[in-house]
Computed example of a mutant assay.
Amino acid sequence: MRLTDFKVLTFDCYGTLIDWESGMIEGLKPLTSKVQRPLSRNEILQAHARHESTQQRHTPTMRYRDLLAVVYKRLAEEWGVVVSHEDCVAYGLSVRNWPAFSDTPGALQYLKKFYKLVILSNVDNETFSYSNKRLQVDFDAIITAEDIGSYKPSLKNFDYMIETLGAMGLGKGDILHTAESLFHDHKPANAMGLASCWIHRRHQDEGFGATMNPGDLPKYDFRFTSMGELAAAHQDQLRA
């Protein structure tokens, strides 16, 4: 199997293209600065993953920015900090400020020359519009949790994506699903029979950070530590 075998790259956004962990840590500072005991970066991210996953299961139609406001409230309660509703809302809106990984825009611009590029993200449409400006590329389709009414790892999201791409003349065999999260993306991609590419952003860190532990590790067809590395590997295959 080669990267050049595919016609479309479908991307998770947050964690893969956008540095959501750094964005979370920055956005949570008004809360974490008030916690009585020191919290490690991974402790903050793992607590966030736990509350976010729970909320996504229970309220699958809630917009992501509103869902994050609830996550902020649950974290404050867990850590014994009093926060206002306005504090919670502000955290939900902070997603629009989360930075792109430095290698993302250039890699996407390169890959756009060879593939259709598609977003499949656990986000709402308004929030993604801000992130999209940071990615600096025109996507061929943007599919959000708000569009579908459910959050990954629900297979509904992947069914919707496959059906959408089918209308564009693309089949399962044309798709390489490209993502960091083994829990949200690679496990359901396995279940749907999709090839996948792991962008292992956390390769120098332990644990799963802002995503849940996937349990039994899913398989993947390619592994790179950045989008830049993926683009370079594609260039190498063209030269071979």
Score class of each variant (00 low, 15 high):
36 Q>Y: 09
26 E>Q: 02
36 Q>P: 09
181 S>R: 03
154 S>E: 10
236 D>K: 13
193 G>V: 01
161 M>L: 10
89 V>R: 04
174 D>N: 02
213 N>S: 04
19 D>C: 03
162 I>Y: 10
117 L>P: 10
201 R>E: 09
73 K>W: 15
169 G>N: 07
13 C>N: 11
143 I>Y: 11
91 Y>K: 00
138 D>Q: 10
68 L>P: 06
109 Q>P: 06
102 S>M: 12
7 K>M: 07
68 L>Y: 13
13 C>A: 14
107 A>Y: 11
21 E>T: 01
184 H>E: 11
15 G>W: 07
224 F>K: 02
224 F>R: 02
220 Y>N: 05
218 P>I: 01
180 E>D: 12
133 K>V: 09
93 L>R: 15
23 G>L: 03
54 T>D: 13
66 D>Q: 09
23 G>H: 05
110 Y>M: 10
74 R>S: 14
64 Y>D: 13
50 R>H: 15
83 V>H: 05
155 L>K: 08
203 H>L: 08
238 L>S: 08
87 D>T: 01
63 R>M: 14
95 V>N: 13
7 K>H: 13
84 S>H: 12
139 F>W: 04
221 D>M: 00
144 T>A: 06
190 N>Y: 11
142 I>G: 05
226 S>V: 08
161 M>Q: 12
16 T>I: 12
58 H>V: 11
83 V>P: 07
199 I>G: 00
185 D>Y: 06
201 R>T: 07
161 M>C: 15
25 I>P: 09
110 Y>L: 13
163 E>K: 06
96 R>L: 08
174 D>I: 00
186 H>C: 05
155 L>F: 13
23 G>R: 01
79 W>Q: 03
104 T>S: 13
42 N>D: 15
87 D>L: 00
107 A>S: 12
38 P>Q: 04
234 H>N: 12
162 I>W: 08
18 I>E: 10
27 G>I: 07
98 W>H: 01
37 R>Q: 14
3 L>D: 07
35 V>C: 07
144 T>V: 02
164 T>K: 10
129 S>P: 10
153 P>I: 01
163 E>S: 08
137 V>K: 01
217 L>T: 09
104 T>G: 05
82 V>N: 15
70 V>E: 12
143 I>D: 14
12 D>N: 02
11 F>W: 06
235 Q>D: 13
65 R>A: 13
148 I>Q: 01
9 L>M: 02
223 R>T: 11
60 P>S: 00
29 K>M: 12
102 S>F: 14
98 W>G: 04
7 K>S: 13
175 I>M: 02
179 A>Q: 06
15 G>K: 01
196 S>Q: 00
236 D>C: 06
31 L>P: 03
45 L>T: 03
23 G>M: 04
217 L>C: 09
168 M>K: 11
108 L>D: 06
129 S>R: 03
37 R>D: 09
188 P>W: 08
134 R>H: 14
173 G>V: 02
70 V>T: 08
217 L>I: 09
229 E>S: 04
210 A>W: 14
137 V>C: 03
92 G>F: 10
153 P>A: 00
143 I>R: 01
236 D>Y: 14
120 L>V: 03
80 G>V: 07
53 S>A: 14
105 P>L: 04
214 P>G: 07
116 K>N: 15
62 M>W: 10
166 G>Q: 02
229 E>A: 04
53 S>R: 11
167 A>H: 15
232 A>G: 08
225 T>R: 12
190 N>D: 13
